[in-house]
Design a protein around this nucleic acid. Structure first.
Lengths: 184, 184
DNA sequence: CGGGAGAGTATACATCGTAAACATACGCCG
DNA sequence: CGGCGTATGTTTACGATGTATACTCTCCCG
């Protein structure tokens, strides 16, 4: 098989996802169309298909970007604060991308960015003294709750509730978690 | 203003939503289009607009139907079982309508069916001994978690995890709730 | 009986995702 | 150094979608 090299691309998958994220940030998910992304990159719509399988793949990439942008607190902080920071980041992300954020609940968390976030939760739970056997379960429960809460807030399910009330909700949960950890 | 009465309709909003629910059940949300709904009712697409403001309204109606179909356990059962049954119903619904179910997280819970479900949770929390002041917060947290969990499971976020593991997750949560109630 | 209103229809348009066929530039191998 | 293989980008086209607009019909009330 003869090896050959093609010409240099004028756009990359990264740029495609950048444009997608930007469009989603400006006009929500409904502003994301193959044509809009292409035109932002000064390129024909069909050109995107060399960097993205189809629109679903584009959206998957968008979700991956959302997760990848999450600041993951390092191990220097005590674990309860790491949990708080994670929750705060998720809420912030959900506020910026209310509809795209919902897609976090749709697909298995097997992507690199999802694994990275999960590992951070695992580490925090370990530091909290959870048994190695319980950790996966606790991670599922916690991540489900955090994502669901952030998504609900971002999408407006809580209506016009003031931010302080929702902050209070999460503080209450934190208190329960700390109490549970102390008990164990 | 002269009052007049038009001819008798051949379809009603209820039938439109019935058809929508049926289509969603058979082919998922992507099978729901104005044209598909109309054709199932043997009617022109534009006829739907006399019973539904636009497609978003149609989908809102679908979500309302999902909530309305939820069996809400009566007060004859002890509150922990009522919570279990509610959770089981939500999971069942999410399994049947994975993508439509996600929309539950999108809009404020001001509709009749949503209020009905919320009142059921309120009642269970009251019976559990929660203070009247805490109940709204606890309801927010519980409903968010239950919906998020059911949606995650239905949409496949947990991957190929076996059902027993997820059952175990919820039992663990139930145990925590009961312990919290006993402590209070 | 006549007219007004609401239900349903016909037609049309902009937009969407993407399939298929083609054009182009590039670097490797002869 | 010349041309070949290939990945990149373009052109064109198609079917599907949501819905605006303008109609027709039917029915009941005054």
């Amino acid at each position: 098989m003869s090896e050959t090299v093609p010409r240099q691309p004028q756009i990359s998958r990264e740029q495609v996802l950048d444009a997608t994220l930007a469009l989603a940030g400006e006009g929500g998910l409904s502003a994301v169309s193959m044509r809009a992304v292409a035109s932002r990159l000064q390129v024909t719509p069909m050109a995107l298909y060399h960097h993205v399988r189809d629109k679903q793949d584009l959206l998957d990439g968008l979700v991956e970007r959302l997760l990848g942008e999450l600041p993951i607190p390092g191990a220097e902080l005590p674990w309860p604060e790491r949990l708080s920071l994670l929750a705060a980041s998720l809420r912030e992300s959900a506020r910026r991308h209310p509809d795209a954020f919902l897609m976090l609940l749709r697909r298995p968390a097997n992507t690199p960015a999802a694994r990275r976030a999960r590992e951070a939760l695992y580490a925090a739970l370990r530091d909290a003294g959870a048994s190695e056997e319980q950790i996966p379960r606790l991670e599922r429960l916690l991540s489900t709750f955090m994502i669901g809460f952030a998504a609900s807030e971002g999408a407006g399910r809580f209506g016009a509730l003031d931010r302080e009330t929702l902050d209070g909700d999460l503080e209450w949960v934190q208190a329960q978690i700390r109490a549970g950890a102390a008990r164990a």
